[in-house]
Structures are given as C-alpha cells and as structure tokens.
C-alpha cells in the first residue's frame, strides 16, 4: 500500500443519532457523547461548544454536525450560528504566524498553534445524470529527511467529502509516505453516492507538512479525463474582509461547438459569502447578472452558466464571467462540458 488509510466515517447515521463514542471533531478527537454532555450542562451555541469541548476550533469541518446535535437537543430554543468565530484562546497568535513564516515548524508553548490548511476541490459523481466520476491524487514529493528523527517525512491528512450544504458525508485519514502517492476514488469514499451528484472534497493538512505536495483531481467520463489542481495551498486568513485587488473570473473563448459551462464555488472563510453575483460581460460590452446563493463556510454551489447566460455557451461570444464584489476568498473552479464528445474541462479560477 502506498499509504496507511483509515476510514473515519462513511454512510454514517445523522449527527443527531450518532453513538456517544463516535468522534465528531476529528481534529480535537471530541466525541458526540462529550458534546451532548456539554449541551446538557448548558451549552446552547456553537461558541459554547467550542469553549467547553474544544470541538470545531481547527478546521471547522464538524460545524454542521454540531449544529444538528444542538438542534436535536434544544429544538426551537436553538438559533443556528450565522458566522463561525474562533475562541480567542484558539486564535493563532502573531508569534506563531511569524515563526511559521521563518520556517520554525512547530510553535513553542505559549504560542497557539497555526490552524491547519484546508484545500477544496469540486466532486462530480453522476452529476446531472452524466457518467462522470472524481478521483483525487496526492504526491508527497519530500525527498529529504526530518532533521529531528532522521526519517523521511510522511504527510498525514484528512479528506472530508462534503455535500453542497456543507454536511460531511464521509471522512478518511491518510498517511502518505515520502515519494509515494495517494489516490482517492470518491466512489469508494461514498459508495451510496452523493446528493445531487455534486459536492466538494476538503483536505485538512497541518501547515508545516503542506510544502511537499499539492493535490490534483480528475473528472473521468467515457469521453476522457480532465484534471486540475487545488489552488488554495498558500497560507491565508480565514476571516479576510479586505477586498481583493482584482476579480476572479471564468474566461469564455470562441469554441467550435457549444458547451455547457458551470461556476463551482465553495465558501472557505468564517464569514459567509453573501450578496455576491456572477457577471457575464462579452467583448461587445453587454452585461448580464445572476445572484449567487448565500454560502456559509464549507458550503458549495455549482451554477449552470449556460442556463443563466445562454450566450456563454454558444461558442460565438468571448468575454468573462466574474464574481462581484471582489470580497471573500471562495475556492472557485470553472467547468465546461462538451455533450458532443462527453468530455469535461476543469480549471481553478
């Protein structure tokens, strides 16, 4: 085997019915039982659970599971969290961030740990009735040895399969040895399929391990295979409110045949992606707009541009589809589909 792999969850019961001994927060190893006990002792919000159990303070992947438990336990008395926040004591300190930039792999005592990196990619599994599948490939290119242990450096990461609503459908932990690859077939992670045939995969990696690899993914169909990589590999804030100095966009070139076009976006920030819209502008200056749904952390959308903007797909118009305003940091991908050849094309924004 290329790697040691542990299935953490697969086709699990709903969060509200999960057994007490089952882990809900894989980062902090917090069980459902611990969470329910905290609620019984007065915790009534995600913030309370963060403080009382430390759950949901690293990658935030259990956020929707915890909200399900809160809702089941408290009923109408529970108000869902709109914005995820990090308890002050869990926030990465300035010292830890500086040490990280200086190449110090682990922050010393007193400097809160750097949050793990989260990397998102789209998943298509039978999307819109098409015979399309997704595979993720990771390569650990470390060739040197850890100075402390003298061993080649392995990389451990967790892969969460997410529905568009952000719910975690399955989770797998994998340890990739140096110079080895790991391959995830989504059909193996979720043998029962995924709702709507579309979702996202989120990789959670400790920051100091990230430099050795970048994940790529394939969409495979009877017509062929398309591939691109995750983009959000660099360190970035989870609570950025500054405007980006440019717009993310999907380029539209002239094509020989009409193609379907989709914009896939996952919200990666603690603040929701809200009041955003997609703007199609062609080279003649014609502009059309469509609002994006509100997306909270880990939620995704796959917008069929060819339905909203028919001239994007006819092959006779050039231009771009951009995201406005230039706020927030979604993980974005452009997807094209040629029904004539059953071929997909995908690229990150």
């Amino acid at each position: 085997m290329a790697e040691a792999r542990t299935t953490l969850t697969r086709d699990r019961p709903s969060a509200a019915e999960s057994p007490a001994e089952r882990t809900v927060c894989h980062c902090r190893q917090v069980t459902y039982g611990t969470v329910r006990k905290a609620i019984d002792h007065g915790a009534s919000s995600l913030s309370d659970l963060q403080h009382q159990t430390t759950a949901c303070t690293r990658c935030f992947g259990c956020r929707f599971d915890l909200e399900q438990v809160l809702e089941a336990r408290l009923g109408d008395a529970y108000s869902p969290t709109k914005i995820v926040t990090l308890p002050v004591r869990e926030e990465p300190s300035r010292m830890s961030r500086v040490l990280r930039r200086l190449g110090v792999p682990r922050a010393p005592a007193g400097a809160s740990a750097v949050l793990p990196r989260r990397m998102y990619m789209p998943v298509l599994e039978g999307f819109e009735g098409h015979d399309v599948r997704t595979r993720v490939i990771l390569y650990n290119s470390y060739d040197d040895h850890d100075q402390r242990t003298g061993r080649r450096r392995n990389v451990t990461l967790r892969a969460d399969l997410l529905g568009l609503d952000g719910s975690r459908l399955a989770a797998t932990e994998v340890n990739v040895k140096a110079r080895h690859s790991a391959v995830f077939d989504i059909a193996e992670m979720a043998p029962g399929g995924i709702p709507d045939g579309v979702g996202a995969i989120k990789l959670v990696v400790e920051a100091e391990q990230l430099g050795s690899f970048r994940p790529y993914f394939h969409f495979t169909s009877p017509g062929g295979i398309t591939s691109t990589h995750e983009k959000a590999g660099t360190e970035r804030s989870m609570a950025s409110t500054k405007p980006r100095p440019y717009y993310w966009l999907l380029p539209v070139g002239y094509t020989l045949h009409p193609e379907h076009a989709y914009m896939f976006l996952t919200a990666t920030q603690l603040h929701p992606l809200d009041r955003h819209e997609l703007v199609w502008q062609d080279t003649e200056g014609r502009v059309e707009r469509v609002p994006l749904p509100r997306l909270e952390l880990d939620q995704s959308t796959c917008v069929p541009l060819h339905e909203h903007f028919p001239t994007v797909a006819d092959g006779r118009h050039g231009g771009t589809v951009r995201i406005e305003p230039n706020l927030g940091i979604p993980a974005g991908f452009m997807i094209r589909y040629d029904p004539r050849t059953d071929l997909w094309r995908v690229q990150h924004l």
């Binding site: 017509g223 062929g224 380029p251 539209v252 070139g253 002239y254 094509t255 020989l256 045949h257 193609e259 452009m334 094209r336 040629d338 004539r340 050849t341 071929l343 094309r345 995908v346 690229q347």
Partner: peptide, 17 residues
C-alpha cells in the same frame, strides 16, 4: 496573467492561465 481557452478540433481542449 491572462487566460487561454483552447478547444480541440476533434473534441477536448483546455482552459489554462
């Protein structure tokens, strides 16, 4: 960086910065 949208004469192609 700008973008290239390339469609194969016989199908397929690529989108790349």
């Amino acid at each position: 960086g700008m973008w290239i949208d390339a469609q194969g004469r016989g199908g397929g192609g690529y989108l790349i910065p």
